[in-house]
Write a protein that binds this DNA or RNA. Sequence first.
DNA 1: TTGAAAGCGTTACCAT
DNA 2: ATGGTAACGCTTTCAA
Lengths: 322, 322
Amino acid sequence: MSRALRGLPNVSPATRDLVMATAERLGYVASSAASGLATGRTLAMGVVLPNVSRWFYTTVLEGIDAELRAVGYDTILFNLGLKGQDRDRVFHRSILRKRTDGVIALCLDFTPEERRQLASLGHPTVVVGGPVPGLRHVGIDEFGVARAATEHLIRLGHRRIAHLGGDDEHGLNKRVPASRRRGFLRAMGAAGLDVPEPWLASGGFQITRGRDAALRLLQEPDRPTAVFAASDEMAIGVILAARELGLEVPRDVSVIGIDDHELAEVFALTTMAQDPYGQGRLAARMTLDELAGAGGRASVRVPTTLIERGSTAAPPADAREA
Amino acid sequence: MSRALRGLPNVSPATRDLVMATAERLGYVASSAASGLATGRTLAMGVVLPNVSRWFYTTVLEGIDAELRAVGYDTILFNLGLKGQDRDRVFHRSILRKRTDGVIALCLDFTPEERRQLASLGHPTVVVGGPVPGLRHVGIDEFGVARAATEHLIRLGHRRIAHLGGDDEHGLNKRVPASRRRGFLRAMGAAGLDVPEPWLASGGFQITRGRDAALRLLQEPDRPTAVFAASDEMAIGVILAARELGLEVPRDVSVIGIDDHELAEVFALTTMAQDPYGQGRLAARMTLDELAGAGGRASVRVPTTLIERGSTAAPPADAREA
DNA sequence: TTGAAAGCGTTACCAT
DNA sequence: ATGGTAACGCTTTCAA
């Protein structure tokens, strides 16, 4: 009997024990489809993301899943795929099929149509890492974190600073790379520093592409003395490129990133730490709370901290005159 | 009407169009719980894995999901969690709840009890990356790939070779690191080469831990001239450690790994390539095929290839005499 | 405290 | 080609 298994009241201890024991012996476990139909609760949450290959997404995912798992919720992956070809089909066939009680979306940009569809589902939706109009959101101050990183370099005495940013990838939230670039430019502008056009490079948030871009940047005769990369992965790419060119970090070039990636310590990378795992947990908690009727908490902006390791220092004396 | 929406025969074109149009206008999408109840098909597959943080798992997952997505299947994450505390609960509450039509398990070791439970579910189960008795399996020849990697080093003239392997992590498939170690030892033995005890180090399949272990290994006065790491991540850790110690790869020390990790190229890492993405796709396909009644195909052993990049070379002349 | 019955939203089968 | 209806396996409500 259902009441006994689920620990509801009004069941005698004897009956409960009997039922439990029998269920155990038979290996009985309630079917989720049937109970979902009856209760309207699936005990599953959907996570919409562009891929499970990049550190940020998997780390957030790990946080979401940990929080959900702890309360008996399952995580369903709505991977839109890198090329985004299946995007429509994923939306219709999966997300809208009421397979989940709520949705957490990572760094995505939704079309008005998609937003309408999500809303029509009428279940809690939270966005992580890049605000979407009309949806609750947990993330960092993208503009501020970039400005702070840049100011750190300026404070050290750098004047020739390049920025390695992300691309506008189709379907991904364009606000993130854009806000970081604006934060960088604002800090530079406030310090009266110029940024030559080629010093606004882009590295797609990846180590390899960051390295490629840095290889170009650091081979110029008048190379920058510091690089602000919009993610640690790209910053690591810069460090790798510098080494390949025989440059020493931070003696010849300073590098700062954003994230506090798991490899940041190995590379002694100075970075603006954010906490994607925690953001994932928080987003899951917000979704669960809203589901429990706790009236949607507002969006949350989580803090970032400067972690100084060994990749930033004052520029070489000769560069300081320049 | 259900028939029209699903494109079944015996529906007039006119009726179909009408139904489709109306559904579209109302934003109607069939509920998965109800249709799952009625058909016994959930159109979802479960993926059991230890975490979504390591490259191998996420790459396999990406492959699985791509294949499933293409046929309208959803992927449900059964993340056992690094510490494995929720393992039992995940098993009971999620996997056994008949939320999926099949299960794909990654690199896990199952207790006899867990295997019994999986079997009792009576739905297709495929294992990737480490055989489990009684379950169909896709993976590489773990023993052979390690032997081949080691033989490559021996062929180059190395005689002092260390092995950086994985740990026995609780709940993870112990056969993988064990087979690779045996493959290494077999190759060494066949060449009449000795392996001092401390040269069988362990780096937990991670860059950082691989680096730590290599730091110890390469600081010995009589250090090895080559290291065979059981994964590219650890091999990259070795390269990083070597650089920190002022050693040049491959001049001072050769390094070979297993995987063909996305960073292998950046580090010019010679490696035994496997294809986790392809393995994921294949595992998904096998599960789908079995579901379609195609009578479980047998286990599949996928090939590996030696990719020579720049991290292996003949040992220095003075070492060759030793 | 327990048993019985209705209903959840589909699909599949059987009439029509 | 179409409409009606039982059945899927659970939860919930109501009666006993």
